[in-house]
């Protein structure tokens, strides 16, 4: 299984973090959705925003900022951030490729796609390419089994993958070189 580890406290982890004004406004709007005293409900959506504002991962400072916005104990944020697999507690590449590896995808050839991507990118699932461009992540069923094999990159699903299409996608992303986030519109 993908290694989930404690957050890092090294230099990378202590890089400063501050929400942008736009993000703060979004956080406040989210918090207003819930009944009085229940703003903790906004924790997961706000963590998504923080992750998007912190190069695709949650540093200690980013999580602390979330705790500050919501008025929570920091451990409450940490408990939640480490539970959910879409939150990265370590730096990731410009693109995170979430490749589905669950049985229905496997039946339609996901093993081959994953093996190909591993070879092509020179990393195992969970790893990031040396140039910091791609993080390859093996994930569980993304609800796209009829169009398998598939991968998710940011908010986008790339379906009916073949080796050729995977290659084309990698080339295209590399050429574009701009970060994708789950929260992209």
């Amino acid at each position: 299984m993908s290694a989930r580890t404690r957050p890092i406290t090294t230099t990378e982890g202590t890089r400063p973090f501050a929400f942008s004004e736009a993000a703060l406004a979004e956080c406040r709007a989210l918090m207003a959705r819930y009944p009085e005293g229940r703003s903790k409900s906004a924790l997961i959506p706000i963590l998504h925003i923080a992750q998007a504002e912190n190069d695709g991962w949650l540093s200690v400072n980013a999580m602390d900022a979330v705790a500050g916005v919501l008025g929570l104990q920091r451990i409450e944020v940490y408990e939640v951030a480490s539970f959910y697999s879409m939150f990265n507690l370590h730096p990731v590449g410009t693109y995170v490729l979430d490749v589905c590896r669950t049985t229905p995808c496997m039946l339609r050839g996901s093993d081959d796609v994953i093996a190909h991507l591993e070879r092509k990118l020179g990393v195992h699932c969970g790893g990031t390419t040396a140039d910091g461009m791609f993080t390859l992540k093996g994930v569980e069923c993304l609800g796209s089994c009829g169009t398998a094999p598939m991968l998710q990159c940011g908010a986008h699903y790339h379906e009916d993958l073949t080796i050729e299409r995977a290659d084309a996608l990698i080339d295209e992303l590399r050429a574009r070189n701009s970060r994708t986030n789950y929260t992209d519109r």
């Binding site: 959705r33 229940r38 903790k40 409900s41 906004a42 924790l43 997961i44 959506p45 963590l47 998504h48 919501l70 408990e79 939640v80 539970f83 959910y84 697999s85 879409m86 939150f87 994930v139 569980e140 069923c141």
Partner: peptide
Amino acid sequence: IHVQVGAGAYICGEETALLESLEGKRG
């Protein structure tokens, strides 16, 4: 009606885990 997004956890489909998650907790 409000839409709440999760963050990657199959267990949050179980209805009480879902409610926990909706309250901003671990699933």
